[in-house]
Amino acid sequence: MQTTNVTCVICPKGCNIEVDHENRDGKEVVLAVRNNKCPRGYKYASAEVVNPERVLTSTVRLAGGTYPRLSVKSEHPVPKTSLFDCMREIRKVSVTSPVKMGDIIIENVAGTGINIVATHNG
């Protein structure tokens, strides 16, 4: 068994939550959650241990736009462990104006099943 400290970021109280968990067949299983002041913290802290995810934002090269970069994001959160794999793919991409906010820039980035989309017109 392992205990991980998770700072809850759901509300400004910022509880320091303790999560007991262990690895069963390559998957983290939550055994106990302590010090959360509300159920939202329980959910957040468990997810942080089992499969932490983040929305990734970055930029890609843009030809023919006002500026040489176009801002992009992952449409949904991606696993924290694949952030750098996603960045490697994002860095290779170059798009040409016109692009509209919401356009898909990379499909299924780094095999995560998640798309990278434009966050601005360019």
């Binding site: 801002s71 906010m101 966050t119 601005h120």
Partner: peptide, 12 residues
């Protein structure tokens, strides 16, 4: 929850 450029683009 939007990114900064998305918030701006909506107003533009």
């Amino acid at each position: 929850e939007l990114t900064g450029p998305e918030y701006a683009q909506r107003y533009i």
